[in-house]
Design a protein around this nucleic acid. Structure first.
Length: 582
RNA sequence: GGGCCCGUAGCGCAGCCUGGAUAGCGCAGCAGCCUUCUAAGCUGACGGUCGAGGGUUCAAAUCCCUCCGGGCCCGCCA
């Protein structure tokens, strides 16, 4: 609707001024002084206020425009009732299916510790982006990369085999996480043993298979319990050990065959396969990046490149086994030696949610795609980077154990506790409290721009008032309760008060917000929209009764319905769970 | 040596991409509003050299440059 009216106005203005319609479209914006304003007068010859006045005087009649008026240099438009009326009776919003296949990867936490608030930030961003892209018509695969061959897992295996198993832990990921801290502190003494575990893992020995079954997979299941409690879901878990078996050698051969990747015959990188990036990273001492070492193995970047190539559809498919049935009624599959074939790769857009400290290696991968002639791949390879979550005095370190007390599980527990304190310990409200508790955390993370460091603070993460999920959910419930009381009314003639108008004008922006959110991969835009919509609704609610002395006011009922539609939709796109009551 | 991100009210943030009307919001603190659809709400007042300086422009929180403060990255490691 909003686009439609902008388009109509631009057409008329293009006719009046001979300026290109696209230029005019850009000058049209919502404004607090009117319904829509144009700065077109600045683009024309002559004095802006005079231009503006002329345009206002000669603006043609249109059924959607009540009036056009010059205010200094600005040209202000006011919408007609019939425009609002059409908006109120417009069908539910949806986007047409696109032919984009997107893989979103998150949070790829090492399978040897519980998620802490930093991992949670990653997971929430990824999950929300996946939801939003899926809504905009993309077909989306939610992927988790499992580094089951790394040094961290090897250390945890050592700990599992050698440390005393005292009391059985509540949750396996927490148990492993604490063991890992112990192992890390004495890494020097046990280094050789850890390295030999690492070798077993890399060669995929029977022992390695047993460890995967006894340690890695149970840890993942424990982590996924956390994930589910936050409404975070996946379609595929890809284990590095399976990549190793299935595509690794082929990947190395493929890299070697690519034009743009060179074999160094001399110098410090002698006998390595290297991508030359001195043009791309000017001023860097040594911008060349080794992909394959002189001993023939791939570097971290080389491995990652192979994995990303796999996602884009190079190499064959793996086998998969069902990993878990998820509460959103989808199933998560994990790569596996045996199992069924499934289509888990072949995307044309890849989004990796990775901390911004890995910006450089991610950029390198993008540049390699360009270098080897995969221009389009490079463009569609996206790093959703985010700043860390940290504590006032330290960052989160798995090794040092600074995450203790700040795991995602503990965070949710505390949130639930605070919510229960607020509503009182009444058992039939437990389910609602859980929804509010998880929404509070999700929202407090998602509303912050991904480039901003989150310094973790209990009161902010778990706020129950103001700009918070509980505020939004409360507003949602208010609207829902009204709708439960009424029958869908027939829309009669009406005029709008300013609270009604402001709410509708805000809701009109939804589609553009969604576009922006999915283009920039910034869920906080949508979070803002949702919050502001709630603010406008509450102002409307406090001034404009829908059921006035027992009489239903039809257009207000329609407004509530519209708000409820957009609110529910936005909540689900951000993975927030509305309660039945508050 | 090179590169990236952040700096807006006491605190936490939005606005910056795409320059335009009195710079928005939440928390904290102050003053009000519950016989009517849920007060987790609403209203009012208070609070700002938009890190600093320069430039571009009719117009700069927004674009460009320099500087300051905070964080991060640049291994045949993972």
């Amino acid at each position: 609707m909003f686009f439609l009216i902008k388009d109509e106005i631009s057409k008329s203005l293009a006719h009046l001024t001979n300026l290109p319609k696209e230029e005019i479209l850009k000058t049209l914006e919502p404004s607090k002084f009117c319904h829509l304003t144009s700065k077109i007068a600045f683009l024309m010859k002559g004095k802006p206020p005079e231009n503006s006045q002329k345009l206002a005087d000669s603006f043609p009649k249109h059924k959607y425009i009540k009036r056009a008026e010059a205010k200094g240099p600005y040209l202000n438009f006011f919408f007609s009732e019939s425009f609002f009326s059409e908006f109120l009776s417009s069908p539910k919003i949806s986007f047409p299916k696109t032919n984009h296949d997107v893989i979103v990867e998150y949070p790829s936490v090492n399978p040897n510790k519980p998620w802490h608030v930093g991992h949670l930030r990653n997971a929430l961003l990824g999950d929300s982006v996946a939801r939003i892209l899926s809504f905009t018509g993309c077909s989306v695969l939610r992927m988790d990369y499992i580094d089951d061959l790394g040094l961290q897992v090897a250390q945890s295996i050592w700990g599992f085999e050698n440390l005393p198993k005292n009391k059985p832990p509540k949750k396996f990921d927490h148990f492993l996480g604490e063991q890992y801290v112990q192992v890390s502190s004495k890494l020097e003494e046990i280094k050789e043993e850890v390295v030999s575990i690492l070798h077993e893992l890399e060669s995929g020995t029977p022992k390695a298979k047993k460890w995967r079954k006894d340690i890695v997979e149970p840890c993942l299941k424990a982590q996924y319990q956390t994930s589910f409690s936050y409404n975070v879901y996946h379609d595929f878990l890809i284990f590095e050990s399976d990549i190793m078996k299935e595509v690794f050698q082929k990947g190395i051969e493929l890299i070697k065959s690519k034009k743009g990747i060179v074999f160094e015959k001399e110098g410090k990188n002698k006998d390595c396969w290297v991508v030359k990036l001195s043009e791309e990273f000017k001023g860097m001492k040594d911008a060349d990046k080794i992909l394959i070492r002189s001993n023939g193995t791939a570097t971290y970047t080389g491995k990652d490149l192979i994995f990303q190539l796999w996602k884009f559809g190079e190499f064959q498919e793996f086998n998969y086994k069902e990993f878990l049935s998820q509460p959103d009624s989808t199933k998560a599959y994990m790569s596996s030696e045996k199992g069924e074939k499934k289509q888990a790769h072949g995307a044309d857009i890849i989004i990796n949610v990775i901390g911004r400290e890995q910006e450089y290696p991610q950029l390198v991968i993008k540049k390699v795609f360009e270098k080897i002639g995969m221009k389009e791949r490079a463009e569609n390879y996206k790093h959703l980077s985010y700043a860390p979550a940290r504590l006032p005095e330290s960052s989160f370190s798995g090794r040092k154990g600074t995450w203790k007390g700040y795991t995602a599980d503990e965070l949710l527990e505390e949130s639930y506790k605070r919510e229960m304190q607020k509503i009182g310990e009444i058992s039939n409200k437990k389910e609602n409290a859980e929804k509010i508790a998880l929404s509070a955390i999700r929202y407090s993370f998602l509303k912050i721009d991904a480039d901003k460091i989150i310094t973790f603070n209990w009161d902010e993460a778990l706020a129950l008032e103001g700009n918070s999920a509980p505020y939004i959910l409360y507003t949602y419930v208010r609207a829902k309760k009204i709708l439960e009381k009424i029958q869908p009314p027939e829309l009669l003639e009406f005029s709008l008060n300013s609270e009604e108008e402001n709410l509708l004008l805000h809701l009109l922006k939804f589609k553009e917000i969604i576009r922006k959110t999915s283009k920039d991969l910034r869920p906080n835009y949508l979070a803002d929209f949702l919050y502001e919509a709630a603010v406008f609704f509450n102002k409307f609610y406090s001034t404009s009764r829908v059921i006035d002395n027992g009489e239903l006011v039809p257009h207000r009922a329609c407004i509530v319905k519209k708000y409820f539609e957009y609110c529910s939709l936005s909540l689900s796109l951000l993975g927030l769970s509305p309660p039945e009551e508050m």
